[in-house]
Design a protein around this nucleic acid. Structure first.
Lengths: 331, 331
DNA sequence: AACCTTATCGATAACGTTTTCACAACAAAG
DNA sequence: CTTTGTTGTGAAAACGTTATCGATAAGGTT
């Protein structure tokens, strides 16, 4: 445990009077080293406090016992997934490394290339947009923007979730229900719209097409669109939003017009981000089981790394959370 | 953007008809390459989608533009700090890598040796227990177990926090207040106890020494200790716990005895973990500004890496959050 | 014409590790 | 006393990158 600069393999070898090759074998538990030598080297390792260098060993061996979870940024959504993923690696040989790729386009490709193979044995990638086949390690995608494709994928049941939301509003007596979508081309958005339409169809309530619009998940645009809804000659009595942030924009639009939520307008969100329970009024929303999704994704990755059979697509159930942003329409 | 295995420097060099040295210079913006060559090489890089290998370049250059935040595990507490730390790197040249060192003893030392120097230019280490001077890169400690030492340190004002908690209870009319500590040898625990004692002293209320006990932050032990408090001939009317988890154990102990919180027993926690607002009843607690602490730590690290002057110790204010687990004592 | 600059480029040696392979030592078998 | 194995060991070649430094060519100065 001496406090010299950085201890490397060569230092251990010199002190133990053996070659670096032998030390490396001891470190990695390789076969072909005498018992006495192992004991001797191990002693020196403990003594000097040697710890292998991940970069160097990964570079050579392409096997690191480290798995990654790649996110665009450490926001609340990702943080929940990371927690779940970390849980799945407990009691395994793997350590978890989490990397924020930044806001650059194609961050997933870049991060994967940067760390893949030499620093991680595999990765869970959160909400990837573009991932072609030029990836160097096994990858599991969580909620990919363009839906399950050739990658093993974990996502949540946006269809069922949106359907529950619509049913909730229908049961409260709403008939004029608007759908404020995200980005029409994204799989998750489409699923949510389909679920909404399905519930309406089954209830025999026609969908007013002027009440289905998209906001590109931009809060400002969302507020404008919601305002346009409310400016219609026959405004909606409820809005289903594609995510919680969009829902909050809708509430802001209502407030700006002097309407109160939920008496004048019911609003339902999607995701159940932490803010959802803290905003005023607390948001009725469709919760995605983020931690469970992260755990499932990592478990799937480990299965793949083990070479065992694995599912290609797991869709997690959503949970409908009733808070205070929904109520029966005014009589 | 062709989808071949992994593109390396040599591939780019071959395609562009130059040496790997030249490509490396272009990638790193080094001086001494003709404008035309730069354009040519850059074109090939974009074309092939080349991304440098972090392990290899770090190995050679000991400069990676990646900073780390090292945690024992990705639990809620760490996740908040990570979020804050990530915020501080926005609009800088640095990417953030977060590593969970696992539950092994001396995980901070191991992780730091494993990643330091070759994979990270510096690191924020969360709640380190043992960190000697044999570290390879600049380090900032967040809430180290043994208090501010020779390392640049960020922590929170446990003294003032505990004092607010005690004052709140005193103002409600409590006189018999118990302190359910964590681990007596830890700096943070001691600060909290001192704050409690200071408030009592200023209020002229003597501290009953049989009402000061430690639980080693173990929920089961905490529940036993709390139960022992309540079994006393003259039980406390309020308990200040060393953290939220311990506080929840105290509430469980009260419930097991048929007491209701807060009517029969007031409980105050510490930390304000997410569960604190969700448990029943929602916990009155002392919030540590975790995200701000993470941000401050990372900002300090970046300052150090820049070679600019920096503080040696920043103590963040805590915030007292009144929820529903405290009330005046029964008359 | 001889010399010096300056600009551009590429060989090559690291960085710390793992892996392959050959060699040495010794024992067992023929 | 040779042959054949069996162990244990270390030299050396990778892995993908960057830094150094010398080579070459072009242009400028005396």
């Amino acid at each position: 445990m001496e406090a010299v600069g950085r201890v490397k393999l060569a230092d251990v070898a010199a002190r133990a009077g053996v070659s670096v090759a032998t030390v490396s074998k001891v470190v990695n538990g390789r076969y072909g080293v005498a018992k006495d030598t192992i004991a001797l080297v191990q002693g020196v390792i403990d003594d000097l406090g040697y710890v292998g260098n991940l970069g160097a060993s990964g570079l050579r061996s392409s096997r690191t016992n480290v798995v990654g979870i790649l996110v665009a940024d450490f926001e609340p959504y990702s943080a929940e997934l990371i927690k779940g993923a970390a849980k799945a690696t407990r009691n395994t040989q793997y350590d978890v490394l989490s990397y924020a790729g930044g806001e650059a386009p194609a961050w997933e490709r870049r991060s994967l290339a940067r760390l893949g193979g030499t620093l991680m044995d595999g990765a869970v990638v959160v909400t990837p947009t573009s991932l072609d086949s030029a990836i160097s390690v096994p990858v599991v995608a969580v909620d990919p923007h363009y839906g399950p494709n050739w990658l093993p994928t974990i996502d949540s049941d946006g269809f069922g979730g949106a359907k529950s939301a619509a049913n909730h509003l229908l049961e409260l007596g709403h008939r004029r229900i608007a759908f404020l979508g995200g980005r029409q081309e994204l799989d998750s958005s489409q699923l949510r719209e389909s679920g909404f339409r399905d519930a309406m169809r089954l209830a025999g309530v026609p969908v007013a097409e002027e009440l289905v619009r998209y906001s590109r998940y931009d809060p400002d645009i969302a507020q404008e669109v919601a305002d346009a809804f409310l400016a219609l000659p026959e405004p909606p009595t409820a809005i289903i939003a594609a995510n919680d942030v969009t829902a909050m924009s809708a509430m802001a639009a209502a407030r700006a017009r002097g309407l109160t939520v939920p008496q004048d307008l019911s609003v339902v969100g999607f995701d159940d981000i932490p803010d959802a329970s803290l905003c005023d009024p607390p948001l009725t929303t469709v919760r995605q089981p983020l931690q469970a999704m992260g755990e499932a994704a990592m478990t799937m990755l480990l299965t793949i790394l083990d070479g065992r059979d694995h599912e290609q697509h797991i869709r997690m159930d959503t949970e409908f959370i009733v808070r205070s942003s929904t109520a029966p329409p005014r009589a």
